[in-house]
Design a protein around this nucleic acid. Sequence first.
RNA 1: CCAGUUGGCUGGAUGGCCGCUCCGUGACGUGGGAAGUGUGUUGCGUACCGCGAUUGCGGGGAGGAAAGUCCGGGCUCCAUGGAAGCACGGUGCCGGAUAACGUCCGGCGGGGGUGACCCCAGGGACAGUGCCACAGAAAGCAAACCGCCUUCCUUGGAAGGUAAGGGUGAAAGGGUGCGGUAAGAGCGCACCGCGCGGCUGGUAACAGGCGCGGCACGGUAAACCCCACCGGGAGCAAGACCGAAUAGGGAUGGCAUAUGGCCUGUUUCCGGGCUGCCGUCCGGGUUGGUUGCACCAGGCGUCUGGUAACAGGCGUCGCAGAUGAAUGGCCAUCCAGCGCGGCCGGUUCGCCGGUCGUGGGGACAGAACCCGGCUUACAGGCCAUCUGGCGCG
RNA 2: CGGAGCGUAGCGCAGCCUGGUAGCGCACUUGUCUGGGGGACAAGGGGUCGUCGGUUCAAAUCCGGCCGCUCCGA
Length: 168
Amino acid sequence: MIGGKPPILDIIMIDRLTKRAEFLQAARGKRAAMPGLVLQMRVRSPVNARTSASQGHDPDPCRVGFTVTKKVGNAVVRNRAKRRLRAAAEAILPRYGLPGRDYVVIGRAGTLTRPFALLLGDLERALAKVHGRTHLSPAAISAPGSGPGSGPVTAESETHPDDDRRKS
RNA sequence: CCAGUUGGCUGGAUGGCCGCUCCGUGACGUGGGAAGUGUGUUGCGUACCGCGAUUGCGGGGAGGAAAGUCCGGGCUCCAUGGAAGCACGGUGCCGGAUAACGUCCGGCGGGGGUGACCCCAGGGACAGUGCCACAGAAAGCAAACCGCCUUCCUUGGAAGGUAAGGGUGAAAGGGUGCGGUAAGAGCGCACCGCGCGGCUGGUAACAGGCGCGGCACGGUAAACCCCACCGGGAGCAAGACCGAAUAGGGAUGGCAUAUGGCCUGUUUCCGGGCUGCCGUCCGGGUUGGUUGCACCAGGCGUCUGGUAACAGGCGUCGCAGAUGAAUGGCCAUCCAGCGCGGCCGGUUCGCCGGUCGUGGGGACAGAACCCGGCUUACAGGCCAUCUGGCGCG
RNA sequence: CGGAGCGUAGCGCAGCCUGGUAGCGCACUUGUCUGGGGGACAAGGGGUCGUCGGUUCAAAUCCGGCCGCUCCGA
């Protein structure tokens, strides 16, 4: 069905959440709280996925949004917290995110003061928690599932999860 | 050298890895497509014009307050015959600057400071009304509680005079001195204050003499108010355009017509409620998208006019455009500055400077249509200016 | 973005317009009534009036500037 793709689909397409309704729907899903952040996740239904990707290249992307409330601080503090969370998500989600999911990362007071390495660890463990099982490779999770875009993922990538991601 | 005053500038630097957005330009893909070309026809397709979760290169990318939203404008829509008035709101010494302002500049007056300098909503209280608690005898066309003085009379009181003294109060109806008096008093005089008139200087606010008055005219207008001037309302979420699904409106064509159709009380009986169906077109319109949207009261340099705010001439530059909201994330080194400890030097014994080690580490803060201001926040650093004090020559 | 309002005792509110004394209810403390509790009654304590300036003789009140909160419209 999606034959014209690049041969190795190792990177998951990542979209951004932009609508308030999408954030509200994600808030009803699973959540995991860590010292540096709070993660919410919602599994989109296939009907929504098909309509949202009408023009699209990837019919079922992984999407992420960021929220920092006014309680954390003023505008400078909130924006910096969002940038750190965005940088962390760009580092983690291509490896551990799942297609067809909406993630919302919520900043809290510790987001700014926490060392970046620990923040990455927080996001990793939060993803494992909302995925509901001990951490597996993304190929091993998405292959038996109904993920249409990641079907022909090579099975040998699970043994070396941190090899070169961008083999272009 | 120390302590201050005023004005202005600045708001960490360099490098590495990984990113975001906009503009330009090429490649690639894709759509249209002059010319050209093929053909019986559909076509192929250069220049060119679009589009892009693709990609290369080049360039731009937060602030002095971007903040608070307290004023003033531009711009947009709505309302509106003109003018004046009323109501409401705002402003309030004088002159100037400005598109305008509650802003700025220069003066004046008052207050503070040894001084440089700073602060002031700073019109009108004989247009009117109101208020001035408590205390106090008395608080608003003044007034006699104590006291002082005179007279009368039985040691104590009565009548009268008196605002110098006591006491109350935020404020007691000019102040100080001399004279004067029974004691006193603007009762008289000098100076100061106040009021009125006129003169001189100044565009004016106002200032300085002069003459007269003989003290009456307290405060409060950020109390009502009076006077002068200004103000139509809303705001880029303004406004314009495109516009899917669903629901509803209008026009029109066809079909169906009631013993019908749909919903409902679980079904029947028996009841209740609602009602034409399909197609086409039109207009409104929510999520959303495009636009408005970045070249203008513009920055910098210089000259001229002006005390200045500012204005004019010439030259030069192009300077953010995001929209769950970009302008960054991580790391290393360095430089200012800070704390602690050691050493050296100076000292007005408060401290200051230099150097070494170590710790920790960048202030306030993020454009949202755009400008001019105000206000508020801010680690520090730099430059200039003037004042006061001390020391030396 | 625009508009409106609020901040007073531990809590909920008056007082502000018209400036001089900060009050009400619940709660708290003490006492009495009761064998005790509850309850009633009586007495009492407790407030930088959000904050910083200004006007005034005098400010919770009037006028500005900040801080915090709530509501409304699109």
